[in-house]
Simulated scan of single mutants.
Amino acid sequence: MLLADDEAMIRAGVRSILARAPEMEVVAEAEDGYEAVELARRHQPDVALLDIQMPRLDGLSAAARVSHDRPETGVIMLTTFGEDEFIARALQEGASGFLLKADDPRELLNGVRAVAAGGAYLSPNVAARVITRLRQAGRTSSGAWSRHSVEQLTERERDVLARLGAGLSNAEIGARLHLVEGTVKAHVSAILSKLGLRNRVEAAIAAYEAGIIRRD
Rank of each mutant, 00 (worst) to 15 (best):
R139P: 02
A90V: 05
G97M: 03
L164W: 00
G174V: 04
A90N: 12
A120W: 07
L122Q: 12
A175E: 12
A88Y: 10
K185F: 08
G165E: 05
A186Y: 14
S146M: 15
G118L: 12
E157T: 12
V130K: 13
F81Y: 15
E83I: 14
R89I: 04
Y121T: 09
N110Y: 12
D159K: 13
R113N: 12
P124S: 01
A120T: 07
I87M: 14
R133Q: 08
R158A: 04
V112T: 12
R129A: 03
R147E: 00
A102Q: 14
V115H: 10
A127N: 10
L91Q: 03
D84C: 14
F86G: 07
R106N: 05
G119N: 09
T183R: 15
L168T: 09
A117Q: 05
E107V: 01
A120K: 07
E93L: 11
D159Q: 13
I87A: 05
P105E: 08
P105K: 05
S169Q: 13
E93P: 08
A128N: 13
L99W: 12
D103C: 02
E107F: 01
A116R: 08
L164D: 03
A127M: 05
R89N: 06
A114C: 03
I131G: 07
K185I: 13
E172H: 10
R113F: 06
R147I: 00
A120R: 03
H148V: 07
E83S: 15
R106Q: 08
R158Y: 03
V150I: 07
E93V: 14
E151V: 12
L108V: 14
H178V: 10
E107N: 09
A117Y: 00
G143F: 03
L168V: 08
F86A: 09
A120L: 11
E83F: 15
R176P: 02
